[in-house]
Amino acid sequence: MHELGIVFHIIKTVERVGEENGLSAVSKVTLELGEVSGAIPRELIDCWNWAVRKSELLKGAELVIETIPAVTLCESCSQTYETVRYGRICPNCGSDLTYLVQGNEMNLKEIQAC
């Protein structure tokens, strides 16, 4: 269960930040998630809602997911294109020498707390 492992890591990090900043309750955590990061938003939220119940600091906190679109760069023609729509083969020139430039992210953006 990949999503659950990720959720546990987010909770661990938020708990550390909470301690460092003397927070008493976290109400919202915002995650930036790349379109092809491999984690499924729906699953993350399900795991989150289950896992935060066991945390003093995060009880009832909401997980907000902001999606980062995936973009691929073609080495052959130097153009970028939408990864999810076209996949690995460049739609402009047909080359397979392509690299993901964004869309793999899994960043903890911010937390709302008191």
């Binding site: 990720i6 890591h9 987010i10 661990k12 990090t13 550390r16 930040v17 900043n21 927070l23 008493s24 109400s27 995650l31 992210e105 899994m106 960043n107 903890l108 953006k109 911010e110 937390i111 709302q112 707390a113 008191c114």
Partner: peptide, 18 residues
């Protein structure tokens, strides 16, 4: 009541593990 505040983290989810 404590004041609600936003704390920016802007770090990979894996940063603590790294």
């Amino acid at each position: 009541m404590d004041k609600v505040r936003i704390i920016e983290i802007r770090e990979s989810v894996f940063a603590d593990n790294d």
